[in-house]
């Protein structure tokens, strides 16, 4: 497109070689300066009024957001820590209580058992003593009976041997002399 719209003067320049290096051609300077100023002024206005404040705003918004969320996270972290500590404390308390409860129960049960055992032992002891007394009585009775039976047997044996009735008193004397009486 540029080639077609060349002005006649430039076409003439081209025909005769370059008597002027284009960037140094001062005839274009007014146009170049004017349009540069226009373009740059537009750019400056758009950037300083719209684009840069907006981008700055976005960055500010983002950093604010990040800061507030970090704060929030820190707060929540604190709350979580507190909740964790409370939980630990509750757990420790419950453990301690359970332990004392168990100890109490254990002691109570032990005391109860011991009481019952003592009772039972006493009962058994009295019964044992009673039984022993009975045995002793029965033994004594049996022994006295044995004396009588022995004397009777001795009298009969003597009567049989001698053919006459035995002296009961002598037998009793002999029995008592030979030791054990009931």
């Amino acid at each position: 497109m540029a080639a077609e719209t060349k002005t006649t003067s430039e076409v003439h320049h081209e025909g005769g070689g370059h008597d002027m290096f284009p960037p140094f051609d001062a005839t274009h300077y007014p146009s170049q300066i004017l349009w540069f100023v226009i373009a740059f002024a537009i750019l400056y206005a758009l950037m300083s009024r719209i684009a840069l404040p907006r981008v700055g705003e976005i960055k500010q918004m983002r950093s604010d957001k990040i800061a507030s969320e970090l704060d929030q996270a820190q707060k929540l972290q604190g709350e979580a820590d507190a909740a964790g500590a409370a939980y630990e404390k509750t757990l420790a308390d419950a453990k301690a209580r359970a332990q004392t409860l168990a100890q109490e129960m254990h002691a109570k049960l032990a005391a109860e058992t011991a009481g019952k055992r003592h009772e039972l032992e006493a009962d058994l002891n009295t019964r044992l003593a009673a039984a022993e007394a009975q045995i002793r009585d029965m033994k004594a009775a049996a022994m006295s009976n044995v004396g009588a039976i022995a004397r009777e047997a001795a009298a009969q044996i003597i009567q049989h041997l001698t053919g006459r009735p035995a002296d009961v008193n002598a037998i009793a004397r002999a029995q008592s002399e030979s030791g054990s009486t009931a």
């Binding site: 540029a2 274009h28 007014p30 146009s31 004017l34 349009w35 226009i38 373009a39 740059f40 758009l46």
Partner: peptide, 17 residues
């Protein structure tokens, strides 16, 4: 008497903008 023509340079300046 000065040349303030809209040139290809002007166009590319505005294009950049």
């Amino acid at each position: 008497g000065k040349d303030f023509s809209f040139t290809n340079a002007s166009f590319y300046m505005l294009l950049s903008v």
